[in-house]
Amino acid sequence: MSEMTPKSNTAVLAGARTKARKGGSAVAGRRRVGIGPKLIAIAGVLLLWQLLSVSPLVDSDSLPAPVTVFAALLGLWGTGAYWAALGTTLQVWAIGLALCAVIGVPAGLLIGVSMRATQSTRWVIDFFRTIPTIALLPLVLLLFGATSRMEITMIVLAAIWPLLIQSMYAAKQVEPLLKWVFRVFRISTMDRLRFLWAPSVTLLVSTGMRLAATMALLMTIAAEYIGGAPGLGLELSHMEQAFKRPEVFAYAITAGMIGLLINAALVLFQRRVLWWHPIIRGERSE
């Protein structure tokens, strides 16, 4: 009996914990908009598109009907070129985004920690992040040609700013009272990074990642489309030149779906890692 007690006790406690967590999502399930209304919204857009494409307002050659576009998409799924382009785009996107994170997050955190550094760099950062990166494409293209290096450079130039700025804010959001708690209890630097800084900055840094991920994807496809590097953007450009309108739309839809999936994955990550966070908890219960 006495052997059983601690075991059953922890089981109960573990149960209480999952219960508490499940309780949160049960509340969310009751109030959050389910998949149904979302599908209705998509159906509405498709219907509007269909009506518009058959209406006399637009030329049916320039705006193909959704049915035609989806037929084209299905056709593309059977080709090797489509999947190769998709793979190339995703690979370049991932490398570019990773580079943004490796540079942007530590730099942002370091700048954010110091008030002086924040104020000194404000003009420089505001200047660079306001430059329309696409305007730099000819320059970068001249340097690297239509290569993945050109694309990655463009991605970093475009997508590093939201990460840098969110990381700067993240560093400032670390609770000052907790910093004191860590000092009073003489907690080591490693533990401070692990138990104070990492959890404290995750929300804003991951939000920066969401912004940067979308921006990086846009820039990847733009660099392929305009700069001619291989990938979805180049395929789209080829289809356009061949006057294959449904295929053009099919590639555009592909890009949209990638963006949707990436964002959904990052939101899922945030919910998983930050389930304790007041904002995530609030999102769930509202």
Partner: peptide
Amino acid sequence: MAIVFQDYSRSLMPWLSVLDNVMLPLRS
């Protein structure tokens, strides 16, 4: 020396359980 601050909601770590909050200062 140890301190108990007024604002318990900000002086405890929401990402750690009660037990882990109490154990953390003992790590070193």
